[in-house]
Design a protein around this nucleic acid. Structure first.
Lengths: 163, 163
DNA sequence: TTTTGCAATGTTATATTATAACAAAAGGGA
DNA sequence: TCCCTTTTGTTATAATATAACATTGCAAAA
């Protein structure tokens, strides 16, 4: 085992801190890159961080509507596109939904553990998984460009609850 | 490296044989299980096998229209649902599309190498990838139920062409 | 300071993917 | 044959995503 960088937070963790830290990291990164974290983009990122469960695009849309002027789909999709390009957000393919990136800064394809009970999604980065994938691809002479690794199951908290 | 069970076929491989074998395996499996491989289901499976690139549901719909009476979306989605339940077809999440399963018979979540140039998709089953994923999940006390592993990149044939 | 150009957002419309709900038909065993 | 269950047909609509073009606004060049 190597390189697990995020984990399932306890339900009572300091979530305000999560959000604040994610936003300040994002601001720093964008500033450093000359990328513009505009109000809409910032708001979308903030919403995504308000829970550890992926948000669908239209769910974000509704949430934005409640807070701001009426927002149309392209606005949300553009914000998501920007945030993904900056490595601040990942798309969860099996859910058609989006989560804040737990380790922004360096480009990476996330690996995700998704709880089918509560929806909470943990981003991991296992060097072993990476290595195994590269090996397998290599064996077929396949040149890897990006990976989608999404594991569905039961998170520790939901399992505890079921006992 | 262990357990790679499919690979990128040469463009000139005996494709008729691919299709015939997949269909006869499917028939045998369904017969053994008392599952009904009806004409529509069989046709969908056959279409999927007619190439090694995933088919979108509406693409299947068009293909069916050309051959049979007019077919509606639920018909295709039901056939796909059945075929997936029987382990004869996999869904490729990053494409919203479907491919025939290279190793039907035992239940498994496929691992896929998807060529971004030609779309050809190879199903693999790397024991190392499985083990690494289980390890990583275990470390977070996460109980795995299913996996989605989709690697995008360049297949050997497309890479050769580019030289 | 004004201009200009590009990046971001607004707006309308529509494409693409997927499912709900109910009706009809077809197959298979009592 | 009858009945029950599975499968398919049909209509409508939900959910996700993007195209295309107009407008705004920021920021650097002139």
């Amino acid at each position: 085992m190597a390189g697990v960088a995020s984990s399932f937070q306890r339900p009572d963790h300091d979530h305000v801190h999560c959000v604040a830290e994610a936003l300040s990291k994002a601001e720093a990164l964008c500033r450093a890159r000359g990328a513009r974290l505009t109000p809409i983009r910032r708001k979308v990122l903030e919403l995504l961080w308000q829970r550890h469960e992926p948000f669908g695009a239209y769910e974000l849309l509704k949430a934005l509507d409640r807070e701001e002027a009426r927002v149309m789909p392209p606005t949300v999709y553009r914000a998501l596109e920007f945030l993904q390009a900056q490595g601040l957000v990942h798309r969860i393919e099996v859910r058609n939904a989006y989560v804040g990136c737990a380790q922004p800064g360096r480009p990476h394809a996330g690996q995700f553990l998704i709880c089918k009970e509560c929806g909470v999604t943990a981003e991991i980065q296992s060097a072993n998984v990476d290595a195994a994938l590269l090996d397998a691809a290599d064996a077929l002479d396949f040149k890897v460009e990006s990976q989608t690794v999404e594991i569905t199951g039961i998170c520790p908290h939901c399992r505890d609850e079921k006992i």
